[in-house]
Simulated assay, not measured.
Amino acid sequence: MCGRFVVNAQIDEMARLFTALTSNTVPPVPNFNVCPTNQVHVVRSGDTRRQLLPMRWGFLPSWYKTENAVPLLTNARAETIAEKPAFREACRARRCILIATGFYEWTKTPEAARLPWFIRRTDEAMVAFAGIWQDWGPETDRQSTCAIVTTPANQHMAQIHHRMPLILEPDDWPLWLGEAGHGAARLMRPGGEEILTYHRVAPAVNSNRASGAELDRPVA
């Protein structure tokens, strides 16, 4: 799964990397503790070119009456995404990419203490999470919402958690965004062992109110 992540890249860098036209309402950067329901940086395919847009992290199906309805759908499992009523239409027609620098995951000690880890790409490039999106709300107050697609963890990541975000390589972006025809389902598999690296970080990040550049720094 992915419960929180980091965005520490300039917006113009994101736009150049994804060759996207930037909305003037994207959230400010950096954010070292992106939490569910926050506005996040999302790339989706537009009529003539890609768009870099803000979306609420927390997918809202059309039948939700309020944005605080439960469950909070921040992740969508790759194994069932095409079957779940909440996700299946978005999986076919509304795929997107969420941009991150890295993400957090937690392990537990025998005493049940939560130990946080920061996970990033080994090449230190931006992380492209596969996502799906859905517009929600009345026509006078529509908002775009999204979820991150997850897969079973590869062997390397399984030492921390049994699931991981679906991370897309640049060559995969056109297919995932629907620009290269059909066949995106074949991308829904765990990434290779060499893609990610991780290190322990301080327990300050256990709070969703924590902020600051020190949150993703290594600790002994």
Rank of each mutant, 00 (worst) to 15 (best):
A210Y: 04
R121A: 14
L177Y: 06
D123Q: 02
T37I: 05
F59W: 00
N206T: 01
N38W: 02
M164G: 09
A112H: 07
K65F: 05
F32L: 07
G3C: 01
R186E: 12
V29N: 07
A100Y: 03
M164L: 09
P203C: 06
A86K: 04
F32T: 11
A125S: 15
A100N: 01
P116T: 03
E89Q: 11
D172N: 13
W57V: 09
F87N: 04
A210R: 00
E111V: 00
W136M: 10
R217C: 11
G178E: 02
D171P: 07
M1N: 07
H199K: 10
W133R: 04
T101Q: 07
E179S: 06
E124A: 13
G212Q: 08
P138D: 13
S23A: 11
P71Q: 09
H41Y: 07
W106R: 00
M55G: 02
K65L: 07
P203N: 07
W176T: 03
G212H: 02
T19G: 10
L175V: 05
M164H: 12
P152T: 15
H41S: 07
Q39A: 15
E214W: 06
V127W: 01
A113R: 13
E194V: 07
K108R: 15
C96D: 01
M188S: 04
G178R: 03
D171H: 15
T37C: 03
L215Y: 10
S144I: 07
I167K: 12
E214M: 08
L175N: 04
P218C: 11
T37S: 12
C146Q: 04
R95I: 02
C96V: 05
A147W: 02
L177F: 05
P170K: 14
G181C: 13
G183S: 09
A213T: 06
E105H: 00
N31C: 08
D123L: 03
